[in-house]
């Protein structure tokens, strides 16, 4: 028996939903910021994208505590890499 408590299924589902929402938000922020002319809005969106990247990583590591988790090493490196924009 592992000492680490795993997440209950409904907790994992909740985290999964947050992760999908964050994924869409991050993608949208980085795409839409290219269409925007206003500098203030643009920097705000780019900053949001960069913090979204961190938040997605946090959610991903949380989801590793779930019974449904796919071990990290089975996901190809190129599929899991996100590079922040500067």
């Amino acid at each position: 028996m592992s000492t680490k408590k795993t997440l209950a299924p409904h907790e994992a589902f909740e985290l999964h939903e947050l992760l999908t929402f964050k994924n869409v938000c991050a993608t949208k922020a980085v795409t839409m910021s290219k269409l925007v002319k206003d500098d203030e809005l643009k920097t705000l969106m780019e900053r949001d994208f960069n913090s979204s990247v961190e938040q997605i990583k946090e959610l991903q590591s949380l989801l590793q505590n779930s019974d449904y988790a796919v071990p990290e090493n089975t996901i190809k490196k190129s599929e899991s890499e996100i590079t922040p924009i500067h």
Binding site: A8, H10, E11, E14, L15, E17, L18, L62, N65
Partner: peptide, 22 residues
């Protein structure tokens, strides 16, 4: 919408590590 989703998630999750991050 993000704020609402996170607040809803907090009402469903008990795990202390997850709660802290959320």
């Amino acid at each position: 919408t993000g704020i609402r989703n996170l607040a809803f998630a907090l009402t469903e999750i008990e795990d202390s590590e997850a709660r802290a991050i959320i």
